[in-house]
């Protein structure tokens, strides 16, 4: 059923990773991804992989869930790995037609695959361990300086929050409307692509209508509670850096510095 779709789903928990400030997690994601691309030798790659595995273990997120998020990008991984394998010059092993496979190519292909997999894993870990609300809150705080150049950061964050809030509602509603139209004999499963797209009209029209109605109601409800944008607004859960955030930052800095030093200074 349509309910089974997972969209960067959040799994509540109380691990070290869960409790980290979302701002730290966002910055950490960017810094770590950049560090991954500095990695060169087996040792620095090993450190990247080790750190990622350790984070997954600490977060107590089931590895199965991580694998599920990787399944979506498996084709991209294979494709980039193959391209790297075929187009990296170096010591030739075999060649056919216009392709030749080199030792360097195999290494580069594997390295690229590892990079992409790590990248997706840590991104998935962020969404699995951070509630959408905390994530948008963190993002808003981090992007606040952009307000100076007249970018409506708060409004964007609010839009994102509302959108995330309504995804489950809309999914449920879609399910309901589909059932209702099926009860009137609508058929969503057979026919060619055009026929199937057409069959969705009886679902999309009511869905749009109810979305507009909901938007109207939500706007009224927000105005009733005197919502007037971001200025001077305080929060129920204000973000505050704590001890674990300090610990997290130190670990991150050490690991990333380690990766870069190992790769660039020692070439490992």
């Amino acid at each position: 059923m349509i309910k089974d779709i997972t969209l960067g789903q959040y799994f509540p928990g109380n691990s070290f990773i869960h409790r980290l400030d979302p701002r730290i997690k966002l910055i950490a994601l960017v810094v770590f991804i950049v560090s991954i691309f500095f990695a060169e030798g087996l040792v620095s790659y090993g450190l990247c992989i080790g750190f990622t595995v350790a984070m997954v273990a600490i977060s107590k997120i089931k590895p199965k869930l991580i694998l599920r998020s990787l399944r979506a990008i498996i084709i991209i991984v294979i494709f980039t790995a193959l391209l790297n394998m075929l187009y990296t010059p170096g010591k030739e092993i075999v060649s056919f037609w216009i392709f030749k496979i080199t030792w360097e190519g195999i290494y580069a292909g594997f390295a690229m695959a590892v990079r992409v997999i790590l990248l997706v894993t840590v991104s998935a870990l962020l969404t699995y361990t951070t509630s959408p609300m905390a994530l948008t809150d963190g993002l808003e705080k981090l992007l606040l300086p952009l307000k100076k150049i007249k970018i409506p950061v708060h409004e964007f964050a609010m839009m994102m929050t509302i959108a995330l809030r309504f995804i489950p509602t809309l999914i449920e509603e879609t399910d309901k409307i589909m059932s209702a139209q099926k009860a009137r004999g609508a058929d969503f499963e057979s026919g060619n692509i055009i026929k199937r797209a057409k069959a969705l009209i009886p679902v999309l029209v009511p869905l749009f209508v109810s979305s507009f109605r909901r938007a109207d109601e939500l706007a009224t409800a927000m105005e009733c509670r005197l919502y007037h944008g971001g200025s001077g607004r305080t929060r129920l859960k204000s973000l505050r850096y704590g001890k674990i955030d300090a610990i997290g930052t130190i670990i991150l800095v050490l690991v990333c510095a380690g990766i870069i030093v190992l790769a660039k200074v020692f070439g490992l």
Partner: peptide, 17 residues
């Protein structure tokens, strides 16, 4: 069975299109 059993859902007006 779809046609033999006519099912009117809750708030059926939301399926008008």
């Amino acid at each position: 069975a779809r046609f033999a059993v006519g099912l009117v859902f809750q708030y059926p007006e939301y399926q008008l299109f």
